[in-house]
Design a protein around this nucleic acid. Structure first.
Lengths: 264, 264
DNA sequence: CGGGTTATTGATGGTGTTCAAGGGGTGTGG
DNA sequence: CCACACCCCTTGAACACCATCAATAACCCG
């Protein structure tokens, strides 16, 4: 156990595999000790303007807040697994999660990564269609799925915002199909770095330094490659001074040449 | 020009490439000669119960019908291209379309195929994010996008149904990411045949005979393979009596062995 | 430090691509 | 009605990209 800033207690699960032993219960901690999560306060929420919550008026936000519980998770923790009964939906307030599907023989496909402002649980199925695990410490705003659905049916702007989020995700998914289906290894990695950088830039502001909280294996499983190919590709770019290795990520030295790798 | 059943006139565009010269205007024909499309009649619509229109009550359907125009397209016709201003959204009433994205150097990724009951244009962007071309003769119910959006904002069940369609598409897209990212050639083709069969079965009723209106090239571009790999894979299955070649498609002889190719 | 995980780097090999040639169906025009 | 052209599909052979296997290095946290 270690103490992180602001007196928030993070409980390490010691799940180093990141794959295997993720069936343990999610760790819930924070200012409130209760595993139920503590009351959310939308007024001070940093992602409120990016998230689906932005659809709610000042008057209505209280109704949303009443349904919300704030949850803090340690790094390398399972939020839920594919097939679990989908009790909750979430808005990410801080940190990064990995969303993935697994095949029976161990192969896995990382569907995407969720960052602050993202909504998790758009699918209307009774069970989750993918697994979600934290990569870093993560803060989430949690809602009971049925309550949230009911609210979205009585507050149309929220439903519209959810629909916007869903179609946006759909476009991103189709982009990724092109990457997986028709791009070569080098192009895949370049496309990933540039898009990831853009996504982070929309939250933190644009920067040449790109944090990569996911492992090389996660990147490989996202891009349909092996860890060796990802590693070799990035090593080559480092030798060529296109990117620079920095702790916890990379720095883009030559945006031009990186972008030039991508036809179109 | 040739005559198809029920006196509907189909105009052949003679666009044999299926790729190149698709910038011609969409051919609009049918019982009404007007290129504007003729008035739609929901009462006799065969896909009404499957399509997003099913969200409309008997009373409200008239409002939807007022916005709708029915359009008939010849095979191998461009409905719209990626980047075009998204003036319309569509419900497919008959036939099959191919949805695809193209890279600058000619590589393409077939995002999916649209069949009766499918909604085209879920994205809320001002421009289309992919191209849509007919494979067969196609019937569509066409709506002005802005009018349709307005209506969905005043008829909540329609919006809910659209959202349902979007999240369903999203799940399918994620399924396809697994295929493209982590499955071998043989698995990809098997998964495609089995899923395509299921989709058709939901409309026509289950059958061992599976129509394949798309070319081998289309299948390859959907599965991230080459035409040769698709051809060789299916040829092997034909030798092994797993499938049988029938005009315009295949017949599944051994569902067991085909399904066994897929772990999970 | 020291154990274990993750990343890098090299050598080898396989799956699927690329290149090339031939077959089969269909529509067209003589 | 047949010949021809034109796709589309099939099949074969050689190759290339990336995966696999293997060993070492760097890292992280205890």
């Amino acid at each position: 156990m270690r103490i992180a800033g602001k007196g928030i207690i993070l409980v390490s699960l010691n799940d180093k595999s990141g794959l295997g032993d993720a069936s343990v219960n999610s760790v819930v901690a924070g200012l409130c000790a209760s595993p139920e999560g503590c009351r959310s306060v939308c007024a001070t929420c940093r992602v409120r303007l990016y998230a689906v919550c932005s659809a709610m008026s000042e008057d209505d936000i209280a109704d949303l807040e009443r349904l919300a519980a704030h949850v803090e998770l340690s790094p390398r923790t399972a939020l839920f697994q594919a097939g679990d009964l989908a009790r909750f939906v979430y808005t990410v307030t801080s940190g990064t999660l990995r969303l993935q599907r697994d095949l029976a023989d161990g192969r896995r496909q990382v569907i995407g990564f969720a960052i602050p402002g993202d909504f998790i649980g758009l699918s209307l199925d009774e069970t989750y269609q993918f697994s979600a695990d934290t990569l870093t410490a993560v803060g989430l705003c949690r809602f009971d799925r049925k309550d949230f659905t009911s609210l979205s049916h009585s507050r149309q702007p929220l439903l519209e915002r959810l629909h916007l989020a869903a179609t946006h995700e759909l476009t991103i998914a189709q982009d990724h199909m092109v990457i997986l289906g028709r791009r070569r290894a080098e192009e895949r990695v370049a496309a990933f770095l540039l898009r990831w950088r853009d996504r982070l830039g929309r939250i933190n502001g644009r920067s040449a330094t790109v944090g990569l909280p996911m492992s090389r294996q996660d990147m490989a499983d996202h891009l349909g490659l092996t860890i060796e190919t990802v590693s070799r590709t990035m090593a080559r770019w480092m030798r060529d001074r296109i990117i620079l290795d920095v702790p916890g990520g990379i720095r883009v030295l030559d945006q031009q040449r990186l972008a030039a790798i991508l036809p179109d």
